[in-house]
Every structure is written in C-alpha cells, then in structure tokens.
Nucleic acid binder design. Structure first.
Lengths: 100, 100
DNA sequence: ACGTTAGTACGATGTTCGTCGTACTACAAG
DNA sequence: CTTGTAGTACGACGAACATCGTACTAACGT
C-alpha cells in the first residue's frame, strides 16, 4: 500500500494553511468536504482544471494539513481535518467556511 | 491632500484577505496594529525589508481592506479595520490573530 | 493476462510575488 | 528657500505558483 505524508497536528503552520485556503479552487474542495461529502475520491469534485493540476491542489491541501488522504484501491479518499485544524487554529476553518 | 483607495466593507474579498494574511511580514504588521499600536506610521514597524518592499506590503493590506491608511503630514497613519473585517468575515481576523 | 480506473511524475510555460535600489514627490520645519 | 522626513514610482530580478499534456504506475474487475 502506498502511503501519503501528513503533517502532525502540532506541526501545522499558519502560513501553509492560509496559503492553501487562499486559492479559490482549493476552497471549493474544502467546502465540498465540509458539506458532508467526506471520503470522496479526487475525481468526484468536478474541478475546472486538468487532472495533474487537480493532483497538485490536493497535494497542497494535504501538505498544509487541511485534508487527510488515504488510498482505497485506485482511488484516494479525502477527508477534512476539521478537528485537527480546530485544535491548532481555533475558529479559523469555521470562519473561512462561513465566509465562502 | 493625497487620498488612498480603500475597498468598502461589503466589497471585501476573501481571496484578497486570505492572501494578504498569508504573508508573515504582513501578519507582523497586523499583529502590531492589533496590539494597541494603532495610528502608527509605516516607518514605526521596523520590518526586516527595504523601504519600497515595506510600501508594497502596506499597499497589499490596504487594497485587501485589512488596514486603513490616511495621510498626516508626510506620514501615513495605519489602522486595523477590525470591525469591518468582523462584519464581513466574522471570526476570521480573531482566529488569525489568536494563531499568530 | 488484459483492459480500465485513479492518480502521479515530469517537464514546460506564463504569471504573480517578494525583494531590491534609485530616483522622485509631498509635506513640514527652520 | 532649503533641508529633512515619509512614503511612492519604476524597473529589474529570481523564486514560487497555477496550469497543461504526455507518459507512467498501482490497484481493481473480468
């Protein structure tokens, strides 16, 4: 099984999180995940960009610690790390989601 | 008197605000303003960059609507638009400040 | 074994961003 | 009017970023 790197909760960087959330396409992903579409494969997001660009955005979100990705067969299931973000940066994700 | 453009509260863009706050130098400015150093001139911030770079960062913050700038003699007094940000994106500035 | 599906790796390209230095302007004080 | 102070304009530079297409890999289903 391939494994994917995730930063630990205590290692989350505000810089990385804010930069990740500053992109509209990445906020689209975060919003869909927050709206109950947890554990969706990358392909299910219907982003207006090519496949490799999509991969790029998911990676940015994962490396910033905003989402968790785990393999399931050929797909990757994506989950919002809402609890981790709330623990590290209280209120931040909530505020961004409310504003989107 | 020279005038400076500021976006209206209802025109604040989440994209612009998040991008503005994603830079560590700009967060330094915001933090100092939040810590009671309102109405300070740009020069009072002792930023680790050159003068023109400093101007650049203040402009990004102003154009995003994060700070208000008004001339007073040769100087510019800077103020955090905390109330406007709170009205448009509730909890966002608070969360970012708490995390810094 | 073979084809399908989901995502990655890689290289390229154009754009934006942070940085700088120099020259300039606006205002104030003497 | 001259000097000083605070910030701007402009041009340049390198780094980072979003985007793409093509070729590749890993897992599944038949």
């Amino acid at each position: 099984m391939r494994t994917l790197e995730h930063p630990r909760t205590e290692d989350l960087q505000l810089d990385a999180v804010l930069s990740a959330l500053a992109d509209p396409i990445r906020r689209t992903i975060v919003r869909q995940l927050a709206d109950g579409h947890a554990d969706q494969a990358c392909i299910a997001f219907a982003l207006p960009v090519g496949k490799s660009t999509s991969t790029h955005h998911f990676r940015v979100l994962r490396e910033a610690g905003v989402i968790e990705q785990r393999y399931q067969g050929t797909a990757i299931l994506n989950t919002l790390r809402a609890a981790d973000l709330e623990a590290r940066f209280p209120g931040l994700l909530t505020a961004v989601l409310a504003a989107t």
